[in-house]
Amino acid sequence: MNGSIVEILQIVILIGLAPAFAGWIKVVKCRMQGRTSPGLFRPYRDLAKLFSKDIVLAENASWIFRFTPYLVFGTVIIAGAVVPMLSTNLPLSLTADAIVLVGLFGIARFFTALAGMDIGTAFGGMGSSREMMVASLAEPAMLMAIFTVSLLCGSTSLSGIAGTVSGAGFIAKPSLAFAFFAFVLIALAENGRIPVDNPATHLELTMLHEAMILEYSGRHLALIEWAGMMKLFLFMAIGSALFFPFGIDAADNISGIPQAFVFLVVKLGAAGVVLVLIETGLAKMRLFRLTEFLGSAFLMATLGMLSFFILE
């Protein structure tokens, strides 16, 4: 029973706090670059505005274009039900392990890419093609990182991994460190952040993800944007659950939840600052240099795996 309450609470937190997290990143970034920030709550106001607007749909948009935003939103929420944010004791955590999570993000991307091609513009096709290229290189690296961690913990279930890592106390293992670096690089690529993609531009030479969703408007756009924020939030939560799982409640009681929540907020706040540091310090890469970027993510994960066998 407690498990289901935590489950619902997690999803509510995911839906509710993701825009605030996006706002937090904007605030920190503005501070760091000496600009005035739009405030923590700007994303909420943006979403509200988009929801209230009418939709302008291109003449030849098919049902795929209209279905995609809902699907993307749905997959992120299912992923949110599985990731141990507050507690490892989640009744739905059996639904999906880390590999299934990759698949869930995969199906969202599959449909987004199709939606990009549905309208039949040059931009849409370009965005789809490039996004799929990045994803196809990021996925092996992601899996390698998951492999390393699951070799260490003997499980691919996220709750299981978080439980094992936190139960073992904080032990510095080289394999875990490598896997973490690889994970950071992949998270940047998967969420379309600098240096892989620039979420703030609408310039044909620099955009990947944006190019696919150019034609969206109104509530469709709101859903996609919201899902994007939630995905970023989730990746941070996954990172903290896999590599810094302290504070996540393991027992089946509700009283530990407030404390877990405080930990979550603190960890995410710190993650946001790190993300801003990365994004401010680096420039967007040329498209074909991304192979090197993702190649080094793969190398990191592989080294993690090797050092698991060799050094541990």
């Binding site: 032990i171 510095a172 293992k173 080289p174 394999s175 460190a177 490598f178 090197e292 080094s296 190398l299 080294l303 090797l306 050092s307 050094l311 541990e312």
Partner: peptide
């Protein structure tokens, strides 16, 4: 031993870094 294996991992990492640089 832990620190030792960590440093070994870093040595390996720098070796690969040199290969990629």
């Amino acid at each position: 031993a832990q620190i030792n294996s960590f440093l070994a991992a870093f040595v390996l990492l720098t070796a690969f870094g040199m290969l990629a640089q």
